[in-house]
């Protein structure tokens, strides 16, 4: 199998995630888009791991999976906090601090 088919799939997912992060207003949706990006990284890592026949990439992917979970947890907590104080999970309403 071509290495690039994995890598380009991954690049596509990554960029889709980038689009979602930039264009979505709802905090939860933004976090979902972040997950897309992190998954793209994992596909890269596992594909490379198979390509070079080294387990390091898979270990790396495991770390990424774990930490992504932690990040999402914290992120949702912060979005929840904002929802509670502003009564909306929309990120474009959060613009008190600027300049």
């Amino acid at each position: 199998m071509a290495l690039n088919q994995f890598l380009i799939l991954s690049a596509f997912l990554f960029c889709t995630g980038v689009y979602g992060v930039l264009a979505r207003r709802n905090g939860v949706l933004v976090l979902m888009s972040v997950e897309l990006m992190l998954n793209a990284v994992n596909i890269n890592l596992v594909a490379f791991s198979a390509f070079v026949r080294d387990v390091g990439g898979q270990i790396f992917a495991l770390f990424v999976i774990t930490i992504a979970a932690a990040e999402v947890g914290v992120g949702l907590a912060i979005v929840l906090l904002i929802y509670r104080n502003l009564d909306s999970p929309d990120l474009d309403r959060v613009d008190q601090l600027k300049g």
Binding site: A11, F12, F14, C15, T16, V18, Y19, L22, A23, R24, R25, N26, L29, L91, D92
Partner: peptide
């Protein structure tokens, strides 16, 4: 659920995709 920067976002992500 989209905000007002959908088009710039699309442009940036397509550019990035192209480069990658």
């Amino acid at each position: 659920y989209d905000n007002d920067q959908r088009w710039p976002a699309l442009a940036v992500s397509l550019l990035l995709l192209g480069v990658l």
